[in-house]
Write a protein that binds this DNA or RNA. Structure first.
Lengths: 249, 249
DNA sequence: TCGTTAATGATAGTAAAGCTATTAAAACTA
DNA sequence: TAGTTTTAATAGCTTTACTATCATTAACGA
């Protein structure tokens, strides 16, 4: 149905044209994942080194955790130097924000494409839930970014991106725009389904955070959830039920 | 109806006897908040200095944030020394875990007392929600611990206590027992109300985390929620509705 | 009241983290 | 080929996150 081709960690090509046979030779539609310029000192997508910082950064954070990450270690891992990395990102916190921003942008595209041909808002919502619970198969992205690792980072590190004393400043720089946009888009579906429901955004942000928490709990603090480890579908089932029951009129 | 008297940051007296006039002179029932011994090197509740570390620690974390906290700063704040603090807590992360553990223990007592004379599980649940959304007035605790500051710490720092690579080790040391116990207790109420509901714990842990998130969002990322800043009751309304609708059969 | 012990304070020191600056080599561009 | 940009290499500085030592004081028991 569609196909995604590699370009760089932060851009990807989506061949929507593939759907129609006569268009097979048409040029690919490139969707550039635009990341706010204030999130980096120098666009990591613009150079080989920059892209490596991002993709290796994902691997290393996934491996040792965000607190254990240092630019020195990362530099060593990719046989570069600390100083070089500092030219791209002010500090490791900004790198994390960049990755998270990238993730939400990617999910947004996934969502946009996935609901493209759907009309029923309930169906759309089901797809949206699949997407943020990481149970939506479609749209393969062949980016050098390890998406599974990135998802694990989202689960276990993303609250650290906003739970900091600098939230307000960083927020003004647009760090969380992509997350907000995604949330709004899904929340709007709730409103389509039931215009009278008073807390669509609160419910979606709750569900998104819960998706991550429940996965994490199932692995590390299993007595906080009935979801069992490894069963991706269970989180989705739980949240789908929660959302639909909550918004019913 | 009852009264809480000061003792130390980690223990408090609750005068249940006050309820009955004839018992006015009866000795107070002391409820010791028992904190797992593995969470500290030396019981901070056992000495003046230890208690000060805890109460000043709360103030300082609230003021500058957890990442900015250092034992040096804390020592300076309380005119003591770094080395002295290290005699009580292995590191600042353990201090945070201690505070959080203390908080959940305190909520547990609040809950136990508050539902004491209630029979209807739905009523009990309403009270439980009030308690974890911080909208339950009752039970004043006159502890030197600044409870409002502690609550702000819970909101903005508590995920950091479990989102770490050492979760599993720390978990084995019983760091999260109080949180788990509280969650279980509330989840059991859901089961009482509807024995067929499949995800009581997941729903309660979701609601508890959401209570914190929504408050945080309303202050710092308002487009993620309809809850407006400062309106405590709104989070409760949102979550009460969500929970009751979700568990209905 | 003395002597012992435990708790704290004072001081010092170490390794790593979190940067910044300087220079030189390499790569790419005009 | 000269000039500009990018990266690597190196060094250095401040702060964090500890650990160790020792003197002083308070507490406590005989």
């Amino acid at each position: 149905m569609w196909e995604t081709l590699e370009r760089s960690p932060t851009s990807f090509l989506v061949n929507l044209a593939m759907a129609k046979k006569e268009d097979r030779t048409a040029p690919l539609l490139q969707i550039q994942v635009k990341i706010n310029e204030k999130l980096f000192l120098k666009d990591p997508d613009s150079t080989e080194l920059g892209r490596k910082i991002v993709s290796e950064g994902v691997k290393l954070i996934d491996k040792i955790g965000f607190e254990e990450l240092t630019f020195k270690k990362l530099a060593h891992e990719m046989s570069s130097t600390e100083a070089s990395i500092y030219r791209y990102f002010e500090n490791k916190h900004k790198l994390l924000i960049y990755l998270i921003s990238w993730y939400w942008n990617w999910l947004q595209y996934k969502l946009t494409l996935a609901v493209f041909n759907l009309n029923d808002p309930e169906e759309k919502l089901l797809v949206a839930i699949k997407i943020f619970t990481h149970t939506y198969g479609g749209i393969p992205a062949q980016t050098p970014m390890d998406l599974e690792a990135l998802y694990r980072i989202i689960i276990s590190e993303s609250p650290k991106a906003y739970l900091t004393k600098e939230v307000d400043t960083v927020n003004q720089e647009g760090a969380y725009l992509n997350y907000k946009r995604f949330t709004r888009q899904v929340a709007d579906l709730l409103t389509e389904i039931n215009p009278d429901y008073a807390y669509p955004r609160a419910l979606i942000s709750t569900a998104i955070e819960s998706a991550h928490d429940q996965k994490y709990f199932s692995e590390h603090l299993p007595s906080l959830t009935e979801v069992s480890e490894g069963k991706k579908e269970e989180v989705r089932t739980f949240l789908t039920e929660m959302i639909f029951r909550t918004i019913q009129s």
